[in-house]
Design a protein around this nucleic acid. Structure first.
Lengths: 346, 346
DNA sequence: GTTAGCACTCTCAACTATCGAGTGCTAAAC
DNA sequence: GTTTAGCACTCGATAGTTGAGAGTGCTAAC
């Protein structure tokens, strides 16, 4: 059942009024909005209709109306028009990214913090998934008498490392040889593709290196695991408490607890090249802790086939229009910088 | 003015009762505590005295007593006896550390999370200060056609890296030569000791490498800066909300906001080898946001002269006895693992 | 020195009354 | 036929009242 143009205008006004004032909006105050030249009575009739159709809700009989999740959904799909970022906003986003180290972990952590302070919402960032991460280079060397360090460079620019303490004394020479073999046989492969055959090949070329291999295998496994969980960064938790809907401590705590489990966040964020900005509104979330929260997320691209995500979390009543613009621009710029593309004028 | 033994016993009982029940403790309920065989009236007299001396406070005339900051201070200094960690607690601390990568950043982040879940308080970790960090090894190599990567290993086991995009095409050969020179001249030095002379020596030995040097200098500067701020990790923010004293959202938010500024945390945490566990109680904190919060922190040691910190933050009413044991054991084990010492029986 | 008794204080929770914003419906106006 | 004014009604929020209970300090007895 399609809504006529006037109903849509009214719904839009209700959503935007509620987003701003956080109080159920009544017919009278709505009538005072510029651009809505109807009497309160007319608005009452229309709002009653919208309530019957499920786009609005009434906290109780004699209160104003509040958008329902369905109402928000219609709003983000059809009604809202993109907020235009100001030049200074764009400039500050660019500046926040430009000066950072280009290492992925750090950049994502700092990008998350910046995103949180930009939007004044709780924000998170998700590194690209591991199964598309390619090995670019290995480096092994001794560190002290009884340890050696593995450094692994992957595409995109991620460097992982580990200090290993084998039960034997590492030999500089062997490590150098082993590095060569690893680079020879493994560069260009995805971590997930590696199998027994690869290790056999490495060991065949560098027999002395055999005892080191278990450490390297374990390191790669850790690396892969870490992409599932550790690479989620959460920032701006305190912003959550600034929303009146989280005056109820218990609700706030439950949500914060949920968010602090990085696995959960990574579960709900699957990059999708087709929809650059995705909205998940209230009960559309499967998880209980998110029932009355909304998540807005955007996919960023590194190169052609690597995708990560950034997002913000807040109450169902979020400033969808502003946030979606912020997120999509931020994601786009983040992708550019991570891909190492040259700066262009925007 | 010294307190007599009985007053001390009563103060100790009040503190411990209040820590447990979070409600002003009255003479009657105190008299029911085993080990305190006085009538309520006697206790009333003593408590009135303690109040006059500033160790207890009264929220209002007809309520029980609450320890004052001074009372807590006396408690942690003299009265509390260390909580004895159970074997299973020690074992779980060891297990949480044993399986992790030995890279400092990751380990500290995960240690913080574990500490938060162990203590059920908001926890933070601080990496050792940069001015005592020594260069162990440099590694430079090309990444793609227009970029190169710097990897820096320091003592203790920290590996930093950066992807640089110079305005010229990096040459494998030059990078290899430059690596050699850097290792030759800079290994063993502290980052803060480096000066113009060192770079001149490097450039003299590797003239082709000269254009790369500004990138390396900048990288080292970033590294040093990052030790001041980025290396503070905060975890378990949601635990803060579980304390009844933060039912007031505004208070909770202010504290969380304060804590999310990593510079602030690093400012209040100066390692001190002399006092393994330090307590900062309520108004002893200079910062306003911490006026009614307490911080317990412990110093961990890497090798002989490197110190970092771990800590927990909560309301003035904290379980000081339990937390101080947890923190001191945790700090001790963390130091061991980071120093790469062999496991010993404890 | 310790304890029982007692009048007093002050918070908290429950209850009540009142207020007002907002509604839906009906009938008049456009 | 659509829009608007009028009106009785609903129901949450707010403020004021009251009683119960916990805890106190003081005094007098043990």
């Amino acid at each position: 059942m399609e809504l006529d143009a006037r109903k849509k205008r009214i719904l839009k006004a209700v959503v935007e009024d509620y987003i701003q004032n956080v109080e159920p909006v009544g017919s009278k105050s709505l009538a005072e909005r510029p651009g809505l030249d109807f009497s309160p009575a007319t608005l009452r009739n229309e709002m009653a209709e919208l309530t019957r159709q499920g786009y609005l809700e009434q906290p109780h009989t004699s209160a104003g109306r509040v958008p329902s999740p369905l109402g928000y959904r219609l709003y983000v799909n059809e009604l809202m028009h993109r907020h235009q970022l100001s030049l200074s906003e764009m400039e500050s986003i660019n500046a926040s990214l430009r000066l950072k180290m280009l290492e992925l972990d750090n950049l994502l952590a700092e990008a998350g913090q910046f995103l949180a302070s930009l939007t004044q919402y709780t924000a998170y960032t998700l590194a690209p998934r591991a199964d598309t991460v390619r090995i670019i280079r290995f480096d092994l060397f001794a560190a002290g008498a009884d340890a050696f360090i593995i450094v692994l460079v992957t595409q995109p620019a991620v460097v992982k490392n580990k200090l290993c303490r084998p039960p034997f004394a590492p030999e500089e020479d062997t490590l150098r040889q082993l590095s060569l073999s690893l680079n020879l046989y493994l560069v260009g492969l995805c971590v997930s593709e590696l199998g027994e055959a690869h290790w056999e090949a490495v060991a065949a070329r560098t027999p002395d290196g055999r005892p080191y291999i278990p450490f390297i295998v374990e390191f790669l496994q850790e690396t892969e695991r870490s992409f599932d969980t550790r690479e989620v960064m959460l920032s701006g938790q305190s912003h959550l408490l600034s929303h009146p809907e989280y005056r109820d401590i218990l609700k706030a705590r439950r949500l914060l607890e949920y968010l602090s489990d990085r696995r959960e966040l990574s579960k709900i964020s699957t990059p999708d090249p087709a929809t650059p900005v995705r909205f998940v509104i209230g009960p559309e979330n499967v998880n209980e802790a998110l029932q009355d929260a909304s998540v807005i997320m955007a996919t960023y691209h590194i190169g052609d086939n690597l995708q990560g995500m950034i997002g913000v979390v807040g109450p169902t009543r979020m400033d969808y229009a502003r946030l979606s613009s912020h997120l999509s621009y931020f994601a786009q710029r983040l992708g550019h910088y991570l891909s190492g593309e040259e700066e262009e004028s925007t």
